[in-house]
Design a protein around this nucleic acid. Structure first.
Length: 763
DNA sequence: TTTAGGCATTCAGAATGAGTCTT
DNA sequence: AAGACTCATTCTGAATGCCT
């Protein structure tokens, strides 16, 4: 049998889809060979689900009598052995098929009918998207695409992606006022660039633009299409405009149109549809999540002639060249971002087993879950459904109040991945949780020592994978492609392993187990408390501590034995994270600023790093902190603050510096309290702008009476003479500055003495 | 389609209370 | 003298975005 199978080749798996062929679901694997040739590997596949019951024999007979294909198999539920029936159904919609079959059966539990067939196919066969596959079967067509009827497909680890053809695009729509609406407003520009160097801008007649766009994509036949907001806006928009113009947006392979798959992700057959906005959204450093911000976050050198949404119509009429330039710049920048990120995206995709475009739209919880599902199948664990319970929150990490003031020579000691380590150390897992467990958490949950739990196993696998990568990295030239790829891979591994603890405490998780999360944090609190005690015993001062970090003073000569104690007595790892020459604490937890030995300034938690404060307040605070930490002199810092106070009094500040950005977090009618940014959002919607949860609204406070929300305007509608300078003085700049100076004994009134300062300077 | 809890902060709006005016 | 009203202050909860 084996000998009869023909070896077709080793490929890189781009995407997977279920397609109906003669009414039967069939798996299509879109693959690339090392030269970039595209293969469609087809394999017949019967989706299945499981039934668990006491009366398994009866059910087996019952189902067989209905001509169903059923197997009796050994599986596990939370570590416990069970007999299960695996029922095959030759349809795409397993859930309704299962429901139909289950009708009339009692006392049964059903598993895995809610998992999409394409996902299940990958998991059961251990195949990873963005990973390698070895294909055995028969080549049945050798045209534009090579089509293979596969008999067997196996995973090959560590395959680096072949050269892919990448195309990026940006589209601009014209709307006289408000956000463009597809039923009304036309496409005016589409800019296209490719990694191969193509650079085209389509302008003029809309129908021609769209026709050309479709033609170019068909002709270029890219493997990857990169866009920004393409899932949320562009694809639907372009499909609709094409329809209105009597066209079909056949930009998918084999002339298919894009279609919305689950939850905001748009699928394009045979290609990866990568929307970098999805990625930007889960980078916490980004506040406004624009392409511009993303580019600069990535450290890329690229400048834009930015045209903001609200000024598109006006600019198009007065200076169309500017918009054209901006659009092509965006398309080019997208390619650069893609190049900077592609290794990470593919690593995350391969690790979690989600296709590269899909993994970006998935939240952390689902990424972890997908990873765990692979392990579950390997360990014969049945994959449970989401629990239908409401969440009860539990106690988390311990935070010790800081000692306020300016301190010298402070070392920060961090536990290395504390929660994962504890989960491994105490075998904390949903399948080891047991009344008679040997490991008893400080809050009295018990976990068995043997056998190794599912989650500890997952974590160990991740950690050893990371070690393996890091070992390999050591012998590589850091500039090499392979090193870059491996580095991205180890980052992805770390992200997933750090999220496992949080996953167990998430109600949306299939393996939600509050006890696991709760026990983990309780052991964490015990560890940090013991460490504080130990540090003090050794003669160090604990200035502050948050969850798994300790800020220690008088550490010279004592740190070594402390770290040794952590390793030997606690069985955990800790490392020196930072050494601060000077560090400032306020009364508040989670806020501080320090200067390291190499004179780098860290600002943590303070207004200067918060996106919901005006730039001017943030800058004033940052500069005050900088002066304070660099010079160690309160008077000097005070002077810096006063400079900013004076700037406000003089009105010597750009309007742009006064914008306050706040996120819309839910549909507007769900808000209970009236707030400035909500008022502005409502106003903008009234004027035809599209504002959805996740969007950020920028406003400026203007003069007038009443509550703040009556004194706000969208930032782009404000003129200088209506600004409420007093607000920016009292509530922004002075608040931000006094936060720093107050712990050092400076009073609020002293900030305002800008006039006298120059006088006393003379004396 | 929300990994977790802990925390500071601002603002709106209700509650409170003192003081003053009206009946 | 009791109640109505005003105004300032205090308290509470909603909302956001940070930290580990």
């Amino acid at each position: 049998m084996l000998e009869e199978m023909k070896f077709i080749g080793e490929f890189w798996l781009l995407d997977v889809a279920v397609e109906l062929e003669d009414g039967n679901p069939s798996i299509w694997l879109w693959c690339k060979d090392k030269d970039g040739k595209t293969y469609i590997v087809k394999q017949t596949y019967s989706p299945s689900f499981y039934i668990v019951s006491d009366k398994i024999r009866d059910i087996l007979e019952n189902l067989r009598s209905q001509q169903l294909r059923v197997e009796e198999v050994d599986r596990k539920i939370r570590g416990r052995d069970v007999k299960a029936l695996k029922v095959y159904v030759n349809v795409e919609d397993v859930e309704s098929a299962a429901k139909k079959i289950m009708k009339g059966l009692r006392n049964i539990e059903v598993f895995e009918e809610d998992i999409r067939p394409s996902t299940k196919y990958l998991i059961e066969n251990g195949l990873k998207p963005s990973g390698g596959v070895r294909v055995l079967g028969e080549l049945i067509e050798d045209g534009v695409f090579k089509i293979v009827e596969a008999e067997r497909v196996e995973y090959i680890p560590d395959m680096i992606s072949p050269p892919l053809h990448v195309l990026s695009f940006d589209a601009v729509y014209y709307s006289k006022s408000g956000s463009p609406r597809p039923e009304r407003d036309p496409v005016i520009i589409i800019s296209i660039t490719t990694l191969k160097g193509l650079k085209i801008q389509l302008v003029g007649d809309e129908k021609e633009i769209l026709r050309e766009f479709i033609r170019i994509i068909e002709e270029e036949d890219p493997d990857v299409i990169v866009g920004f907001s393409s899932n949320r806006i562009h694809w639907n928009y372009l499909v609709e405009r094409a329809r209105i113009n009597g066209l079909k947006l056949t930009i998918g392979r084999l002339s298919s149109e894009p279609h919305t798959s689950i939850h905001g992700h748009v699928s394009i057959r045979g290609r990866l549809n990568i929307d970098l906005e999805d990625m930007a959204r889960d980078i916490p450093e980004l506040t406004v999540e624009t392409l511009e911000e993303f580019v600069s976050y990535l450290g890329l050198q690229y400048s834009f002639d930015t045209v903001e949404d609200w000024e598109v119509a006006e600019t198009w009429e007065k200076n169309p060249e500017k918009i054209k330039r901006y659009s092509i710049q965006r398309a080019e920048a997208l390619l650069k971002c893609y190049e900077a990120l592609v290794d990470y995206i593919f690593s995350l995709s391969e690790l979690t087993g989600m296709p590269a475009d899909y993994v970006l739209t998935a939240s952390t919880g689902f990424r972890v879950e997908n990873y765990l599902m692979y392990l579950a199948v390997k360990k014969n664990e049945l994959i449970p459904k989401k629990p239908e319970i409401s969440h009860v929150s539990y106690i988390g990490g311990l935070v010790k109040s800081p000692k306020p003031g300016l301190h010298k020579d402070v070392v920060v000691v961090d536990f290395r991945s504390m929660y994962p380590s504890l989960m491994i150390k105490y075998n904390i897992s949903f399948d080891t949780l047991s009344e008679d467990g040997e490991y008893i958490s400080p809050n009295n949950y018990r976990f068995r020592k043997e056998p190794e739990g599912f989650l500890p196993h997952a974590l160990k696998t991740l950690i050893s994978e990371r070690r393996r990568i890091q070992e390999k990295l050591k012998i590589l030239n850091p500039e090499s492609t392979e090193a870059r790829v491996l580095n991205a891979r180890q980052k992805a591994v770390k992200v997933i392993s750090n999220a496992v603890y949080g996953y167990t405490g998430w109600v949306g998780a299939r393996w939600y187990t509050r006890e696991v999360a709760e026990a983990t944090t309780s052991w964490g609190r015990q560890v940090i408390l013991e460490s504080m005690r130990r540090a003090e015993e050794l003669g160090m001062k604990v200035l502050y501590s948050d969850t798994d970090s300790l800020f220690l003073q008088d550490y010279i000569g004592k740190l070594e034995s402390f770290l040794k104690w952590i390793e030997e007595d606690l069985g955990l790892e800790a490392k020196i994270d930072k050494i601060y020459k000077r560090i400032l604490f306020t009364e508040a937890k989670k806020k501080y600023a320090g200067i390291t030995e190499d004179s780098k300034i860290d600002i943590v938690g303070l207004e200067a790093v918060r996106g919901d404060w005006s730039m001017i307040a943030r800058e004033a605070q940052r500069e005050t902190v900088k002066t304070l930490l660099e010079k160690g002199d309160v008077e000097e810092a005070l002077k810096t603050s006063r400079r900013y106070v004076k700037k406000i009094l003089d009105g010597d500040i750009e309007l742009r510096q006064l914008i306050i950005w706040k996120q819309i977090t839910r549909p507007l009618d769900e808000y209970e309290a009236t707030q400035p940014h909500i008022v502005v959002a409502r106003q903008l919607i009234q004027e035809g702008w599209r504002i959805q949860p996740g969007d950020k609204v920028g406003y400026i406070i203007i003069r007038g009476g009443g509550p703040l929300y009556r004194r706000v305007k969208p930032y782009f509608k404000v003129s200088r003479d209506e600004i409420d300078w007093e607000y920016y003085l009292d509530k922004q700049v002075m608040q931000a500055c006094i936060r720093i100076l107050e712990p050092l004994g400076v009073k609020l009134e002293e900030l305002k003495k800008t006039g006298e300062v120059s006088l006393t300077d003379f004396l």
